[in-house]
């Protein structure tokens, strides 16, 4: 432990972090602080204490394991802006600001679990899995289904998210988001695509209470990819699959429309990349 106080723990190793997690169930786990600190300031959230993972070196960095990228949960988003996955690169490069990305982590983005968080559609489309570690061991769960409601995940008591595993795609992956400004904006809506071997998979942000994908959308996207369907078909399928919020930033109608546009554009990019489109 670099620092230990009744309301603050700063472990250096994963072991110390897990022990602290067990000892301090009420503490808020904080990595970069870029979500937690504004939460305390703006969203009236209170915390009983911090367990900071910021100095656990083992959680930072990316390795390759077989066909998967293993991204430590404490890896800063800035490091993902050069990731080998096009979707991750794009999502990371448009997250927050350059000054935020140096501290924001992939783990924080996942665990904060709001539907507009940048990295989530990419992880969902890419078929990512999560390493959840507790004092008793590690379990690996699909990211699909991990977020159960805005801000709510399947993380169990005593568990920490320790790594995100992302299949290394040989195909095409991309991400795009729409907002009301040209930099530094929360996604009004967002979308990610992965296409490989003629099959497209899409996922959406702020298209419902949790990151969203659907088999019907992927079927329509794949059909568009190989020319068996029209853009209008995909847009109609997306419109039926999503349930976006209505708020002062945008209407649900606009979001539904924009999700369809993004879906078509991303699949079209995948088709061009595969030499299938114009």
């Amino acid at each position: 432990m670099l620092l230990e106080a009744p309301r603050f723990a700063l472990p250096e190793t994963l072991g110390e972090a897990l022990a602290a997690r067990a000892e301090r169930p009420e503490a808020v786990v904080v990595a970069g602080g870029t979500e937690v600190m504004p939460d305390l300031l703006w969203r009236n959230r209170t915390a009983a204490g911090f367990l900071s993972l910021r100095r656990v070196a083992a959680l930072r960095g990316t390795t390759t394991d077989g066909g998967e990228l293993v991204i430590g949960a404490g890896t800063p988003v800035a490091a993902l802006t050069t990731a080998p996955d096009g979707g991750l690169r794009a999502a990371a490069s448009s997250l927050g600001t350059p000054l935020v990305r140096t501290e924001a982590t992939i783990g924080g983005n996942v665990v904060s679990a709001l539907p507009y968080r940048n990295l989530l559609p990419t992880l969902l489309a890419g078929g990512a899995t999560l390493e959840l570690t507790s004092a008793t061991g590690t379990r690996v769960v699909p990211f699909d289904g991990f977020v159960t409601a805005p801000g709510v995940t399947g993380l169990r008591e005593g568990e920490l998210l320790t790594a995100v595993r992302m299949p290394v795609h040989v195909g095409f992956a991309d991400y795009a988001k729409v907002g009301r400004r040209n930099a530094q904006f929360v996604a009004t809506v967002s979308a990610a695509v992965v296409s490989r071997d003629g099959v497209a998979r899409l996922a959406f942000g702020n298209a419902g209470p949790t990151p969203l994908r659907s088999d019907a959308v992927d079927t329509a996207a794949t059909a568009l990819l190989d020319g068996r369907a029209t853009p209008e078909d995909l847009r109609a399928t997306v419109a039926a699959a999503v349930d976006p919020p209505e708020d002062t930033v945008a209407s649900a109608e606009y979001r539904r429309h924009a999700l369809g546009v993004l879906a078509v554009r991303l699949v079209t990019r995948a088709a061009v990349d595969a030499g299938l489109g114009s």
Binding site: A90, S93, S94, D174, Y175, A176, K177, V178, G179, R181, N182, A183, Q184, F185, A187, S190, V261, L262, R265, T268, R269
Partner: peptide, 12 residues
């Protein structure tokens, strides 16, 4: 020129 939507990379 800069594309509409900027870093979101939505525009074509």
């Amino acid at each position: 020129a800069k594309l509409p939507g900027g870093v979101g990379r939505a525009a074509e």
